[in-house]
Each structure stands twice: as C-alpha cells, then as structure tokens.
Design a protein around this nucleic acid. Structure first.
Length: 457
DNA sequence: TTAGGGTTAG
C-alpha cells in the first residue's frame, strides 16, 4: 500500500516535470525512485512516452517503450494512443496505422481516444474522407463519442478547408448532447481567422463570453495572430502587451508569434529583443522557438550562427522538421548560395520529408533572383506539387525578364487548375503584352482567363 | 495519455 502510494506520488512528480518540458528532471525522479525501491509502473512510462513524443521526437518515445518492455511492463491502450498521437505529430500516417494494427494484434481493445487520434491523424495527413468515415463509425456504431471527438472533427474540417461544414457541426453540437467548450470556441475562431472572416470570428468570441467562458491564453494567441495576418499590426502588439499583463506569456507561443511578425516587417532589432525577453523569462526552447530564432538569424544574414544553432538542437536531442529545413533553404537562397540550398533540399528529400513545397518555392525565388530563369523553369516543370506561390513567383519573374508569352502560359495553367494567382501577376502579364505590342494576344488572354474562371466556378 | 494557439515562400 505504501509502495503504491509512493509510486503514485512519484508519477505526479514526473508528470509535473514533463508538463514543463523538464524531461531530464523527470528521468532523475525515475532513477531516485528506483533507488528508494519504488519501481516505475505503466503510468510512469506512459507519461514519459507522451512527453518524449511531444517535446523530443518519436524515436525517443520508442526508446522509452523499449525500456518499458525490458522492465517487464506491458504497454496498454494509453501507451499506444500516446504513440499514435506522437506519430501524428510528426506526420507519420503509415506509422499510425501500423501502431493501430499492432495494438489490435496485442489484444488491446482500442477506446474512443484511439479512434479520435486516428481521425486526427487522417485529417493531418490530408485524408479528410477517411477521418470522416471514422467519425461516422463512432457516431453510428455508438462508440460513445466524447466532446473531444467533435472538437477534433470540427478542427479537422476547418483545417481541410470545410469551415462551413465545421460551423454547421458546431451549431448542431447540442443535438449530440454537448455544449461547446472553450476549446471548441477557440477552434472555430481560429478557423474563421485563418480565412480572414474576422466579423464572424468576432461574433463567436462574443458568444464565448456570453456563454460564461473566459477567453484563455489560446484565444488571445489566436486573435493576436489574426491581427498580424490581416495587417492590424499595432492591434496585435496591443494584445501582446495585454497578454503580458494577464500573465499569459508563460510559454513560447506568444513570443514566437510576435517575433515572426516583427521579422516579416523587417523589424530585426525588435524581433531580437522579443526573443531575448523570452530567454530572460526562462521559457524553455522547443522546436518552434528554435525555428523562429534560426529564421531570425537567416534573415539577418547570420547563416553561420543559424547553423551553429542546428548543432545545439541536435545536442538537446530535438528532431528538426520541414520548417527548419525550409527556413535554411530560404536562408541559403537569400544569401546567394543556391548550390548550398539545392544540397539542403536534396538532403531534405533523402530524409523523407514530403512537405517540401515551400522549400522548392524558395529555390525558385532564389534562382530567379540570381537570374537563372531557365533553371527556375526546369525546377518548376519538375515539381509534382505546385501552389499559388509557385505560379505567382514564376509569372512575376518571367514578366521581369519580359518573357510575357511564357508567363501567360503558366498563368493560364494556374487558373485552369483551379488555383488563384496574384492579381498583380495577372496585371503584369496583360500590361506587359500590351506594352510590347501584343494587344491582340492580351485581349485573347483576358477572355481565356474569364473562360477558365467560369469553368472553375 | 489524448483535442485548440506559435515557426517557412511572393
């Protein structure tokens, strides 16, 4: 009895350290506990696995699983749920599915959280139809959905571009016997803010307050980000200041948001001050904080310092992600080291990063900037996945080189594929054709654009 | 134990 009570205390202590990202201290408690005769149990290992997934990486979490098995403790449904959530965090869909299968093979019955996590994983991997199938299974097969089931669904729908369906589900929550939680409100506000639907977001924020909830740190960060995104820079900074007064700047989120907004506006000194303030406050650095700092160094032209920081991240044991790589590819391009950027992109591909679209867009920009337009065209043609950025960059840069016919072809293929192109890019092509004596072609292009838009609507 | 906020390209 005494031992069980102490192990429970031990686990509470470990959990507290894990929550504030102090994994070394959590491990030290495990060691001390063992020395005193209190052996770690399944809760101890589950807590550590969840923390390693969150703050370090999936491989580190697997080594805890290995230690757990060596200690003769069998993983349970919570262990698997944590690992599946960890794999989701790192975009490893096939690993999620393997883990789910492994759990079934081990005779462990999945609970509603296992399904929730799998649903989240499908959404994150860009497979909303499969996520919806799981959601329907949960509802129709009476697998006792919980509030989180709906939160994950609403969030997934928003992120997958089905914001209006998400809003419908949000409005119909009561039919399933639930009321929106603060989390639900935050999800919907964020979904609307991302689309620039500020008026509706404001209305939901009003509803949140009227329903007796108090906006929390996440509501604040969401609204602040929304201000920066919609050009209301001063208002964003005012929210940051209010957050400080309320004690809502206890983690890295607000600092990273503000620093990045300052970097985008070229306010490097202020961005530096912001990150330094975060360091002074004693907030631990996670991957996003490191990425923000690397971006700051890159934009200041301090490539060496940025690369030194990479070593530091490696020493801490954090696995870098596609953001880190993309920031470096962009930094290398902007410093004129195109070969270095290409090498890095190749390395990124070899590492199996599939979300490399932004990195390729950076390379195209970099090549255009150093006048290698033909090479940029080759890269453009080779790219399997392209977005509005890719097309707009190509069109703008071709126009700069007065290659208006090539620009008009690329612009048309963009519009025909249903993607938007910057209005400024459209104007540049049309004006370029006209000014270089191709008035008839410009007129024809205008009607082709109109036709493509009608066919896509 | 799990869900919501922060980091990249014009």
């Amino acid at each position: 009895m005494v031992c069980r009570f102490s192990t429970r205390l031990l686990n509470i202590c470990i959990s507290s350290f894990c929550k504030v990202q102090q994994l070394e201290k959590a491990e030290a408690v495990v060691i001390d506990g063992k020395r005193l005769g209190y052996l770690p149990d399944v809760v101890t290992y589950n807590t550590l696995i969840a923390a390693y997934c969150r703050f370090v990486g999936i491989d580190a979490a697997y080594s805890v699983l290995h230690r757990m098995r060596e200690a003769g403790i069998s993983p349970d449904v919570i262990t698997y749920n944590s690992l599946i959530a960890g794999a989701t965090r790192y975009w490893l869909l096939s690993r999620c599915l393997d883990l789910f299968e492994e759990m079934l093979q081990a005779g462990i019955l999945p609970n509603v959280w296992s399904y929730n996590t799998l649903m989240h994983c499908f959404f994150k991997s860009g497979r909303p139809e499969e996520a919806n199938r799981i959601f329907q299974d949960i509802i129709l097969n009476n697998l006792s959905p919980i509030q989180s089931t709906f939160n994950i669904m609403i969030n997934g729908l928003c992120k997958a571009g089905y914001t209006d369906n998400a809003l419908m589900l949000f409005r119909n929550l009561h039919r399933h016997g639930f009321l929106p939680q603060i989390v639900t409100y935050n999800i919907v506000i964020n979904g609307l803010c991302r689309l620039g639907r500020l008026g509706e977001a404001r209305r939901i924020l009003k509803e949140l307050k009227e329903s007796g909830h108090v906006p929390n740190v996440i509501t604040y960060t969401t609204v602040m980000k929304c201000c920066f995104r919609s050009g209301k820079f001063k208002q964003g900074l005012e929210i940051f200041s209010e957050m400080k007064n309320k004690g809502y700047t206890f983690d890295a989120f607000a600092y990273c948001t503000v620093s990045s907004a300052l970097i985008k506006r070229g306010m490097m000194k202020e961005a530096n001050d912001c990150m330094e303030e975060m360091i002074r406050t004693g907030i631990g650095f996670d991957l996003v904080s490191y990425n923000t700092l690397i971006n700051l160094y890159c934009k200041e032209g301090k490539l060496e310092t940025a690369l030194q920081l990479l070593d530091e991240i490696e020493k801490v044991g954090i696995e870098i992600d596609e953001y880190t790589h993309t920031i470096l590819v962009d930094g290398l391009c902007k410093s004129g080291d195109i070969e270095g950027a290409q090498r890095h992109l190749k390395h990124m591909n070899m590492m199996g990063f599939q979300s490399n679209l932004v990195a390729y867009n950076c390379l195209i920009q970099g090549l255009c900037k150093v006048g290698q337009m033909d090479y940029a065209t080759k890269v453009f043609e080779m790219m399997e996945l392209k977005d509005s950025f890719t097309y707009s960059s190509m069109v703008h840069n071709l126009c700069k080189e007065r290659r208006f016919h090539s620009a008009s072809q690329i612009m048309l293929s963009c519009i025909r594929s249903g993607k938007k192109i910057l209005t400024s890019a459209q104007r540049a092509v049309l004006a370029g054709l006209r000014s270089s004596g191709f008035r008839r072609e410009a007129k024809k292009l205008r009607s082709e654009i109109r036709m493509a838009m009608i066919l896509n609507s």
